[in-house]
Write a protein that binds this DNA or RNA. Structure first.
Length: 567
RNA sequence: CGGGAUGUAGCGCAGCUUGGUAGCGCACCUCGCUUGGGACGAGGGGGUCGCAGGUUCGAAUCCUGUCAUCCCGACCA
């Protein structure tokens, strides 16, 4: 490819509206162009990267026996009503109507369609198991798209769906997919960690997320992990062993005390001279338009995804102050679970509350708390607390660490979550109908591209891993008016191209500096400069990754390219 | 959903306070010169100033509304 013909525009400055480095570099190096918030055109350079990632995905998926297909992007409401998700999927599902006024939507995921298709085709246990996948655009109308391709509204995803006759067979396939995912990301040059996670809107029981761990902090997930064993989990799913804290307030009898203007746990602990862990904290929420109170030990915080699951809710938010008065007849800062009508207000107790004695509790009245309170019998405890760094690994009891992660893939064991409501069944050996046992497996292809940049860049631009670089080699003739330089450069270009190496020749009449800056910005793994030293029969060979420069003959340069690109 | 900021040429910005011919840098086109880390000179093309109302003889500028974008927050009592 001639640089002068490449459909790309690099910018001298970073765009003003980008925050994440991958977003800044993708725009500045001319890989993407924004059309609307969270919606981008993939320019030819980006498309080449996406194609390479997709091909790696295809090879590894095909190697497991999975088959590629392609499903509709615009879907009728009907299938979503069948699974029940038309009602429960929030505003992320972009809905619209066709000319006949039928409800339609843009696909955010494809469980419904694939379940429907498979149930038409697969009737017998003899045809199972089955794993099918596609690589395609998805649309999710995110509440806050940001970070360029890391959280766009339209994005490219590989989604696979497997169908089984037993949980054991699903687990076997799950392990196969886990290995395939590790292979895929390794081949993309990305080290990932498979962490336990909540299964979110997709549903199901067991799930893992593949995280690229990064220090650049645009990862939107907190990952807790243990150095001593392989335990790791998303914060929405992590559990821990707490350090031994005092949970006995030491008060001899239960009584109401004045706590004027003491609203926070910290102030209250100081005021009453007790540990925060001896205070029973009440946090009021609205879930699906109904009130709830989450009770948790004073030194711990609520993990809202866990709470959402405990409430079996679709969405939750903390109560406004006026709602505390309205629903709980109480005052923010002094809420007690004891005074609410439990037929109207759902009360959830966190596991950390278990074992608390003689604790401090809101008195449901402004400026008053109860001290020396104790729990009633028959209380059910659920884990709704957020793990903190330094708490201990649930497996090996060593301190947990936390880091940020970019989720590039996930795998779920769905079970019959979709097949049962959609009545998607096969006939077993005994002639009996059973719903398929399902799994699903996603990879964010466009996000993987962005994650690679987050991981591999420097002050000058992108540093692509060879496997997913848009091109391998950039040949720069320094002076395009110098016949010898141009001849050698063209010759190199032809020879490299003939060897199947993906090569760009920067034939633009710009000064060398311009070409070097663009080469670094775009991130070609190898740059071959043909300049003055050609009089001595030498070209300059430079690798983007380590910046090492060598002066070698054109033939040696060709050999070196082969060596680097094949290894 | 709440708060803050910003919308002026493909990109980055000035002009707005104090209303009066819409500017600068980069990019683009022509010519010259230059060619190892984003040169230089001369000339040139490109903008309904986000959109809609209003005030005014006159609005990028003042007022109202609206839309969009970015950032922060979304109550842990």
């Amino acid at each position: 490819m001639k640089m002068s013909k490449l459909f790309v525009q690099t910018l001298r400055e970073f765009p003003n509206d980008a925050e994440a480095i991958s977003h800044k570099l993708l725009v500045r190096a001319g890989f993407i162009k924004k059309l609307a918030n969270g919606i981008y055109t993939y320019m030819p350079l980006a498309q080449r990267v996406l194609t390479k990632i997709s091909n790696i995905v295809r090879e590894e998926m095909n190697a497991t026996g999975a088959q590629e297909l392609l499903m509709p992007f615009v879907q009728p409401a009907e299938v979503w009503q069948k699974s029940g998700r038309w009602q429960v999927y929030g505003k992320e599902l972009l809905r619209c109507k066709d000319r006949h006024d039928n409800d339609m939507c843009l696909a955010p995921t494809h469980e419904e369609v694939i379940t429907s298709v498979v149930s038409d085709v697969i009737n017998s246990y003899k045809q199972l198991p089955l794993n099918v996948y596609q690589i395609q655009s998805k649309f999710r109308d995110e509440i806050r798209p940001r970070f360029g391709l890391l959280r766009g509204r339209e994005f490219i995803m590989k989604d696979a769906y497997s169908f089984h006759t037993s949980q054991e067979d699903l687990e076997r396939e799950y392990a196969v997919m886990a290995q395939a995912y590790t292979n895929i990301f390794n081949r993309c040059g990305l080290e990932t960690k498979a962490v336990q996670s909540d299964s979110g809107a997709i549903g199901g029981s067991v799930s893992h997320e593949y995280m690229v761990l990064t220090d650049t902090a645009v990862g939107e997930n907190d990952v807790f992990y243990c150095d001593c064993c392989d335990y790791s989990a998303n914060s929405n799913h992590a559990i821990s062993i707490l350090p031994v804290n005092e949970t006995d307030g030491g008060f001899e009898k239960e009584e109401i005390v004045d706590t004027p203007n003491v609203k926070t746990i910290e102030d209250l602990a100081k005021f009453l001279n007790v540990e925060a862990s001896c205070i029973l904290k009440a946090v009021a929420y609205i879930y699906d338009s109904k009130p709830a109170i989450a009770m948790i030990r004073g030194d711990k915080e609520i993990e809202e995804t866990k709470l959402m699951n405990a409430l079996n809710a679709l969405e939750i938010r903390p109560m406004e102050e006026f709602e505390v008065e309205e629903f709980l007849n109480s005052t923010a800062g002094f809420i007690s679970y004891r005074n609410v009508d439990k037929t109207k207000v759902k009360v959830v107790f966190d596991k950390t509350v278990q074992g608390m004695k003689n604790f401090v509790l809101g008195a449901n009245e402004k400026d008053k708390h109860i001290v020396g309170a104790n729990l009633e019998k028959d209380i059910e405890f659920v884990d709704i607390s957020l793990v903190k760094e330094g708490e201990f690994c649930p497996v090996c009891k060593k301190p947990l660490k936390v880091t940020r992660g970019i989720e590039v893939g996930n795998i779920f064991q769905l079970g019959t979550k979709y097949s049962a409501p959609m009545n998607a069944c096969y006939t077993d050996e005994n002639g009996k109908l059973n719903p398929y046992i399902m799994g699903c497996y996603g990879i964010g292809v466009s996000r993987t591209m962005a994650a690679a940049i987050e991981k591999y860049h420097d002050d000058f631009g992108i540093v692509w891993p060879v496997e997913i670089a848009p091109y391998h080699v950039d040949i720069v003739p320094v002076d395009v008016n110098n016949e010898e330089q141009v001849k050698i450069a063209n010759d190199l270009y032809e020879k490299l191209a003939k060897l199947g190496i993906e090569v760009v020749i920067d034939d633009r009449s710009d000064r060398a500096g311009v070409k070097f800056k663009d080469a670094d910005l775009i991130g070609f793994p190898i740059r071959i400069t043909v300049g003055k030293t050609i009089q001595e029969g030498l070209v300059e060979f430079k690798t983007r990754k380590d910046g090492v420069v060598e002066k070698i003959s054109p033939d040696e340069a060709i050999e070196k390219c082969q060596k680097i690109l094949l290894s």
